[in-house]
Amino acid sequence: MLKLDAVTLQKGDFRLQADLQIAAGAQVAVIGPSGAGKSTLLEAIAGFLPARDGRILWRGQDITALPPGQRPVAMLFQDGNLFPHLTLRQNVGLGIDANRRLSAAQAEAVTAALARVGLAGMEERRPADLSGGQQSRAALARVLVQGRDLLLLDEPFAALGPALKAEMLDLVAEIVTEKGATLLMVSHDPQDARRIATEVVLVADGHVYPPSPTAEILDNPPPALRAYLGAPTGS
């Protein structure tokens, strides 16, 4: 269980309060108006933004003071998810160990992960030689070998077309289910949430609201969410 215990986040004049729990293995969409603090929330969970107040716990263990790389978290950002000067094999290998050479077995795992996301035979390519979709797949291959409990997505597929984005989300759902990981995914699009999220967390008015079941909250949105969604979305 991921627990944000009376957490206050601050960025300049902007403040965000979060006090909620997310069940282990849940697939959660984080929805809210732009500028409401969705990315800020993920940054804090990943350890890039120190919490001003409160505690963050994972399975009962306090991770508030841990540096990003030592948290049980894998995160994909909007961009810059691969080092442009490294090959796919090297990029994915960093997910296993970023500081040492890989053993033969670990190298095997890298090849297998690339094959799993449909990039077999592209191990020696660099990100610039790939399409946007292939780059996303490579980043997901790294998430696979990282084997972390929490996967945070800060709209890494925003630049992809609708069909490709849906494909990636399905791949994410597969990976998360396979690994039993917990997913937190920032989204602008309620359709994304309906596609793979079991629950939705609303971020609005300086608050992170506790999760609600996806269909329930989208079909019957509270006032803050209704203001963001505008017209009813149907199903």
Binding site: A46, G47, F48, P67, P68, G69, Q70, V73, A74, M75, F77, G80, N81, L82, F83, L86, L94, G95, A98, N99, R100, Q146
Partner: peptide, 21 residues
């Protein structure tokens, strides 16, 4: 700007960051 966050997320420490990035 381009690489620090990703390196941190991967727990890449000082010498490795110098050498690899």
């Amino acid at each position: 700007q381009q690489n620090a966050r990703l390196a941190l997320a991967l727990n890449m420490r000082g010498p490795a960051f110098w050498r690899r990035v």
